[in-house]
Structures are given as C-alpha cells and as structure tokens.
Computed example of a mutant assay.
Amino acid sequence: MRYLHRDDDVWPGDETPAAYVHGLMQRDAPGLGAHLLRWAARRAADEGHSRLRLDCVDTNHALRNYYAAQGFREVGRRAFEDRQWHPVALFEKPVAQATT
C-alpha cells in the first residue's frame, strides 16, 4: 500500500485536504486490508486531512463493494483519454480530527 499526500494523476486540480491510498493488496491475511485502511485514516486525521481517498478500476465491483463496506462513499469516476489507464471509480471517507 502507498500512502500519498497528493494524487494529481487521478484527482487533478483538487485542493481538498486529503490523503490518498494506492496499491492496497492483501492475500491470505483476513482483516489486514481493513486494518491498513484504519491506519491510513488515523494518519490522515493526525496530519490534518479531512478525507481519505482512493480509487479502483471502475469494473471491479468486488473491490468497489469492499471499499463501501469499509465506509468509503463513491464520489465519481475518472476516465483517462491521455493515458492507457482504465476508467476508475473514486471513493472518499471523512476522517475525524484528533481532539486535545
């Protein structure tokens, strides 16, 4: 999994204070993906971001359902005419700021 502070390739021109997850992969480790997403959400909140965002190939319905089950809401789609990438579904989840 990669944790990023910007994603101009997929979310161009968006200045929302958000963190981004890419490349989340898990196999044979039940619960690891959910654990990593919780970690990323805590880190994003600790760093002052308001949202955690991610994307997946638009036609991967199993992964889209998984992200929805993890509390992410689909907020759009992005096609890439200038790249040889598949269209993606965009997801985000608000993260709670730590209180002192």
Rank of each mutant, 00 (worst) to 15 (best):
E15Q: 15
L52T: 02
E15A: 14
A96M: 10
M1N: 11
A45N: 07
Y66E: 01
P17G: 11
D9N: 12
G76Y: 04
H35P: 00
H86Y: 02
D14R: 13
L32T: 14
D9W: 09
F80K: 01
H61N: 00
V21R: 10
Q70K: 00
G13S: 13
G33V: 00
L37Q: 10
K93V: 07
P30F: 03
V75I: 15
D28F: 05
P12S: 06
R83S: 04
A40Q: 07
G71E: 06
A29S: 14
L52W: 10
A45Q: 13
L36E: 13
W39A: 15
P30E: 03
E81D: 15
D8W: 03
P94Q: 05
D82V: 13
Y3D: 08
V10F: 04
A98V: 14
G33F: 01
W85G: 00
H35C: 08
Q26W: 12
V21Y: 07
N60K: 01
L37F: 04
R2F: 14
D55M: 04
D7W: 01
N60H: 06
F80C: 00
M1D: 10
L32E: 15
K93N: 01
W85A: 05
G13M: 13
R27C: 11
A68W: 05
Q26N: 11
R38G: 04
P87D: 01
W11P: 05
H5I: 13
L24M: 12
G71K: 08
H49S: 14
R2S: 15
R64E: 03
D58S: 11
L90D: 02
G76I: 06
A45M: 11
R51A: 09
P87V: 00
R42G: 07
A68N: 03
R2G: 15
A79V: 09
W11S: 08
W11H: 04
L54E: 06
A18T: 10
V75G: 06
G31M: 00
G13C: 12
S50E: 13
A68I: 11
A62C: 02
H5D: 15
N65T: 03
E15S: 14
A98M: 07
V75Y: 00
R6H: 12
F91E: 00
P17T: 12
G33L: 04
